[in-house]
């Protein structure tokens, strides 16, 4: 089945109202996600990169309908989940899961590990009562957790092990699709590698589809098949990993990549230092949102919003340089 898309996102927008004054009147909007489109093939990993506040988490949450998008369409396995009512959505819930950055706050400290992993399994009646314990132990084993951990509490575990517990909790629901929001960012380097390897193994075994959100470009390059680069709520460039890393086209992508420090003192990168800060998403620059920091800015960049352009092989860039 080539080109079977598990996730399709079309022109997704999510605006958060800004309220102020005693009357809490809406005085503006944070355009957290501002018209984003992409799709993810079954069994693939889509890496979403960009600096903090550019809208990555909001995209993940909108896709899972943990927050209702302002407009746009999200299809999961062909079903437009935006149109579903709460009750109709319920059977879809186990199929799409999320793993968070902070394995400390996302685990209930009063619940033993077995219950944390099994709670939703029971709720959705995924396995019979007689098979339940064996099922949980199997999931734990797949995630590299020892059987006797089942009665232990989260505080007894290190960061890496807690992230394994989070992964096991998601996996127990037998999902097709997992949003991984900075899953290794809070972990030490040597532990990161353990978790990344685990996620890759599980993906192969179970044909999982990942949306992998991270600000760490080298981790994203390692795990992704396709990559999307975001800036201020917009997707500025998407393409296969090879295309994006070997031949980045958008000036922001180039600057972003050149900023990554390389663990080799002999390599002195020709660094593109961006001037200034990221503008506020409540009042993004007109035209191309990147024009205030772009060294190749032209007159029309300040007026016209660049439209996405396919440069071949699904390598899509939004920049007037390629008009």
């Amino acid at each position: 089945m080539p080109n079977e898309y598990v996730v399709e996102v079309n022109d997704l927008k999510k605006y958060f109202p800004i309220k102020s004054g005693i009357l809490q009147r809406t005085t503006g909007h944070v355009r957290a996600v501002d018209g984003v489109s992409f799709r993810i093939q079954k069994g693939h990993t889509f890496g979403l990169v960009g600096e903090s506040g550019c809208g990555k988490t909001t995209i993940g949450r909108s896709i899972l309908r943990l927050t209702d998008p302002t407009s746009g369409e999200v299809k999961i396995s062909g079903v437009d989940i935006g149109k579903l009512k709460k009750k109709e959505l319920r059977p879809f819930r186990p199929k799409m899961q999320m793993i968070f950055q902070d394995p400390f706050s996302s685990l209930d400290p009063r619940m033993p590990v077995g219950e944390i992993i099994g709670e939703a399994v029971k709720e959705h009646n995924l396995v019979s009562r007689s098979e339940y314990k064996e099922y949980i132990l199997k999931v734990m084993k797949d995630c590299g957790l020892r059987p006797y951990y089942i009665d232990r509490y989260p505080h007894e575990f290190s960061g890496g092990q807690r992230q394994r517990i989070c992964i096991a909790r998601a996996l127990a629901l037998n999902p097709d699709f997992i949003v991984c929001d900075e899953p290794v960012s809070a972990l030490d380097v040597s532990i990161q590698a353990q978790i990344i390897n685990l996620m890759k193994d599980l993906q192969e075994q179970r044909q999982l589809t990942y949306l992998f959100i991270s600000h760490d470009l080298s981790v994203v390059e390692h795990i992704s098949d396709v990559i999307g680069v975001m800036y201020l709520g917009s997707m500025v460039e998407t393409g296969t990993k090879d295309d994006i890393f070997k031949e980045p086209l958008h000036p922001y992508t180039k600057a972003l990549f050149s900023a990554v420090p390389v663990a080799d003192p002999d390599i002195k990168m020709k660094r593109i230092i961006l001037e200034g800060d990221i503008p506020s998403p409540s009042n993004p620059p007109k035209g191309c949102k990147f024009h205030t920091r772009c060294s190749q800015c032209m007159a029309k960049c300040k007026e016209e919003v660049p439209v996405p352009k396919d440069m071949g092989n699904g390598h899509i860039v939004s920049c007037h340089l390629y008009d």
Binding site: G160, D188, F245
Partner: peptide
């Protein structure tokens, strides 16, 4: 050596990251 190997590097393809087992 393990620290260096467990870190993915930009533009260097490896199938599997080297990982140091266990914890501090």
């Amino acid at each position: 050596i393990g620290l260096m190997k467990s870190r993915p590097m930009l533009n260097q393809k490896v199938d599997r990251l080297y990982s140091i087992p266990g914890n501090v």
